[in-house]
Design a protein around this nucleic acid. Structure first.
Length: 597
RNA sequence: GGUUCCGUAGCUCAGUUGGAUAGAGCAACAGCCUUCUAAGCUGUGGGUCAUUGGUUCGAAUCCAAUCGGAAUCACCA
C-alpha cells in the first residue's frame, strides 16, 4: 500500500476517534516545505468544521493521536493550519523495501491495459529538411510514446507525409529552371537539404519577380496574380493530378531524394515508424466522404461548385472542404486519413502531435468527423505544442531564418566531444565507445533542453547561446548516473544482488536518505501524471530533482566508507535504486545514460 | 475586427485539484578536490507573480476588466 494512503486512513480514524464524526472525501496532503521539519504535511483547514477547534489545536490533536496510538510518526509539529509529520524511519524503510522488490518500480507490464493508442508525428512536408520546430515535435512524440508504453498501453506510431501539392511543385519547378540536372550525389548534398535548397531558390526567384512587377507599377496583389512562376507552380500541380508522366517522374525522383535524406536523420534520432501514410495516396479519398456528407446535408454546395460546412453554430466559421474545381484541400485529406487509420487499426485513442498554430484546423476537423457520425471522432486528440521561437521571432523556412535540425544535431555532438575531451573523460574508452558517448551526451542535452519545457508553452531558443551541459541539463543527470555506477562498480555487486539484500528496518535514517526514498517513491505518481497530461516535461523535471538530491547525498555522506555494514548496504541499495530511477525516467525521455563519463 | 493562448528574478524555465515566507538553472560574486567521478557541492545577492478590482479563512493559481505579446480566422499546408 502506498505510504500516503496509510496516513490518510490513520488520520481519518483519528478524526472519528477524536471528534466522533467522519471526514468525507480525500484529505489534503502536500510535501512539507523544506524550511519545516517533516516530510508530509496535512492541511487542517478542511477539518475545522468537524473538529470545531482552531487550526493549531486540530493539528496538535491529530499529531498527538498519531504519535501515541500508532507507529507511523517519528515527530510532528504544527504551524498554523499545517501538521508537519516526520514519517517513522521504519515506514520509509518498508516503503523502500517494496520499491526494491519490484523489477522496475512505477512501470506497468507491457501492453497490460489492453488499450491501444495511435500517435502521429512528425508528418513533415517533403520539400524541405527538418528544423528545430520538427525536433520538438519528434522529441515530444517519441517521449510520449515511451510514457504511454510504460503505462501499459500499446502504441502505434504513424507518420503522414505531405508529399504533393503546391509546396512540392515549387521545389520541382525550381529544379527544372535552375537545377541543371544536378542530384544530391553530384552536389554531395543530403537529399532533403538538396530538395529544400530548391524550395528556397523558388522563393527567392518569386520574390524577385514580384518586385520587378511592382516596379512596373503593379500592386502587390496584381503582381501576385501576374506572376509567371506562380502560374507555373499551379500548372505543375494540375499536371501532377492529371498523372502527367514527366511531372510524376520528377516528383518521384525528388521525393526519393528527400526520403533518403530524412531517413538518415530518423536513424540518428532513433525514430521508427510503424505505418506511413502518404498524402498522394489518400488525397482523393476524402472526396467520397464529402459526397456522403453532402447527401446527409452536413455539407452544402455553393453556386460555383465549391463545397462548405457551416460551423457558425459551434462558434466557428464556414469552412471549405472541396474547391470549386473539385480538388481537395488540406482538411479533405485529413478526413480521408482519419478514415484510413480507423480502417487499418483498431485503436482506442489517436493522438496528433501538431503545433498549436493548427489549433483551429483540428477543432474543425474533429467537429466535421463528429458531424459525419464517425464513431472514432470522440477518440481523437490534438497534442498541441507551442512554437519554438528565436530571439528574432518565429522561424520561417522561406526566409532562411530556421535552425536546421541536422546542423544543430551535429553541433551538439561536436560540443559534447569538445567538452568531454577537455575534461579528460575519454580515457580508457575505445574510439567507438567515445563516439557513442558524444552522441549520447550531445543528443541528450538537446532532447532534454526541449522536453523540460511544458509542451503547451512556446519556448525560446537562442542560437548564439549554446545549449548548456551544466546545471538543469541532461549531461548533469547522465553524469550523476555515471557517478553512481562508479560507486557500484567499487562495491562489486550486481544490481540483482543489491536488490535482493534484506533491509534492516531498525536502521536510523539520515535526512538526505529519507528525502531520497520519498522522492524515488514518487516516480510512480509522476509517470501517471505525465501520461495523463501528455507531458514529458513532468518526467524531465522530476528526474532532475532525483539527480540533484543524489548529488547532495553523495557529498554529505559516504557510501563505501559508511560507519557500519548496515549503513553501507543500505546506501548501496539506495544508490542503486536512484540509478535505476534515473535510467528509467531518462528512457521515458528517449535519453540514454552512460556507465561512465 | 472575431476566436484562442500567453505575461513569474537580468536570461531560460518550474510552481498538481486554490494553501505556509513564490522555487530551480544560467549569468555575477565568495568558498570546497591527499577522501566513493568537481559535467559536482555549499553560500551571497537578485521578485509589485503585467496592472486593477472581485470571489474566501487563504489567490501566481479561479472570475472580470485593462495593458502588452503571439497564433489563427485562405479555393495554402
Amino acid at each position: 500500500m502506498e505510504l500516503l494512503k496509510i496516513y490518510e486512513e490513520a488520520i481519518k480514524k483519528a478524526v472519528i476517534d477524536l471528534y466522533h464524526k467522519p471526514f468525507e472525501g480525500s484529505l489534503s496532503f502536500q510535501k512539507t516545505r523544506k524550511e519545516f521539519e517533516g516530510e508530509i504535511t496535512l492541511v487542517t483547514f478542511p477539518l475545522l468544521k468537524i473538529s470545531e477547534k482552531n487550526p493549531e489545536n486540530t493539528g496538535a490533536d491529530i499529531g498527538n493521536y498519531l504519535q501515541e496510538k500508532t507507529l507511523l510518526v517519528k515527530k510532528y509539529n504544527v504551524v498554523k493550519g499545517f501538521l508537519n509529520i516526520s514519517v517513522a524511519d521504519a515506514m520509509w524503510l518498508r516503503c523502500f523495501s517494496d520499491i526494491l522488490k519490484e523489477e522496475s518500480y512505477g512501470l506497468s507490464q507491457p501492453q497490460s491495459t489492453g488499450r491501444s493508442i495511435m500517435i502521429e508525428y512528425p508528418s513533415p512536408n517533403t520539400n524541405k529538411p527538418l528544423h528545430l520546430g520538427h525536433l520538438r515535435n519528434v522529441f515530444l512524440g517519441a517521449s510520449l510514446s515511451e510514457i504511454l508504453k510504460a503505462c501499459g498501453h500499446k502504441v502505434v506510431h504513424t507518420c503522414l507525409y505531405n508529399d504533393r501539392g503546391t509546396n512540392i511543385s515549387k521545389s520541382m519547378l525550381a529544379w527544372k529552371l535552375f537545377g541543371n540536372n544536378e542530384t544530391p550525389n553530384s552536389t554531395h548534398k543530403k537529399g532533403d537539404h538538396f530538395v529544400g535548397h530548391f524550395y528556397v531558390e523558388y522563393a527567392n526567384a518569386y520574390k524577385k519577380e514580384i518586385e520587378e512587377l511592382k516596379k512596373q507599377g503593379l500592386s502587390e496583389e496584381d503582381a501576385e496574380k501576374k506572376s509567371v512562376l506562380a502560374q507555373q507552380v499551379n500548372e505543375l500541380t494540375v499536371l501532377w493530378e492529371k498523372n502527367d508522366v514527366e511531372t510524376r517522374t520528377l516528383w518521384k525522383k525528388m521525393n526519393t531524394w528527400f526520403y533518403e535524406g530524412i531517413e538518415q536523420t530518423y536513424t540518428t534520432l532513433n525514430l521508427k515508424v510503424d505505418k506511413t501514410y502518404y498524402e498522394s495516396d489518400v488525397y482523393h479519398l476524402g472526396k467520397e466522404t464529402v459526397h456522403e456528407g453532402l447527401q446527409k446535408n452536413i455539407f452544402y454546395k455553393k453556386e460555383d461548385g465549391s463545397v462548405w460546412i457551416d460551423l457558425t453554430k459551434e462558434g466557428l466559421d464556414h469552412k471549405l472542404v472541396l474547391r470549386s474545381n473539385g480538388t481537395s484541400v488540406y482538411i479533405t485529406q485529413d478526413i480521408a486519413t482519419a478514415n484510413e487509420k480507423d480502417n487499418d487499426f483498431n485503436i482506442d485513442t489517436s493522438i496528433y502531435v501538431v503545433g498549436n498554430e493548427q489549433d483551429y484546423h483540428f477543432k474543425v476537423l474533429f467537429l466535421i468527423l463528429k458531424k459525419l457520425g464517425k464513431k472514432y471522432a470522440d477518440n481523437l486528440y490534438h497534442l498541441s505544442y507551442g512554437m519554438v521561437e528565436l530571439p528574432s521571432g518565429k522561424m520561417k523556412s522561406r526566409e532562411g531564418t530556421v535552425v536546421d535540425a541536422d546542423d544543430l544535431i551535429s553541433d551538439m555532438i561536436d560540443s559534447a566531444k569538445n567538452t568531454t575531451t577537455e575534461l579528460g573523460k575519454t580515457e580508457g574508452l575505445s574510439e567507438v565507445e567515445a563516439q557513442q558517448l558524444f552522441k549520447m551526451i550531445g543528443l541528450g542535452a538537446l532532447r532534454y533542453f526541449i522536453l523540460k519545457v511544458d509542451p503547451k508553452k512556446k519556448m525560446l531558443f537562442d542560437p548564439a547561446e549554446s545549449i548548456d551541459f551544466n546545471g538543469h541539463t541532461a549531461p548533469f543527470i547522465q553524469y550523476t548516473h555515471a557517478r553512481i555506477q562508479s560507486v557500484l562498480r567499487k562495491a562489486a555487486l550486481t544490481t540483482n544482488e543489491i536488490k535482493k539484500t534484506n533491509i534492516n528496518t531498525d536502521y536510523p535514517l539520515h535526512q538526505k536518505e529519507t528525502e531520497l526514498i520519498h522522492l524515488i517513491s514518487d516516480f510512480k505518481n509522476v509517470l501517471q501524471e505525465a501520461a495523463q497530461a501528455y507531458s514529458p516535461a513532468l518526467i524531465a523535471n522530476y528526474v532532475y530533482e532525483v539527480a540533484k538530491l543524489y548529488n547532495q547525498f553523495y557529498h554529505e555522506l559516504s557510501v563505501l566508507n559508511a560507519e557500519n555494514e548496515d549503513q553501507k548496504n543500505f546506501r548501496i541499495q539506495l544508490s542503486c535504486q536512484c540509478a535505476l530511477t534515473i535510467k528509467q525516467a531518462m528512457k521515458l525521455l528517449c535519453i540514454e545514460v552512460p556507465e561512465r563519463m
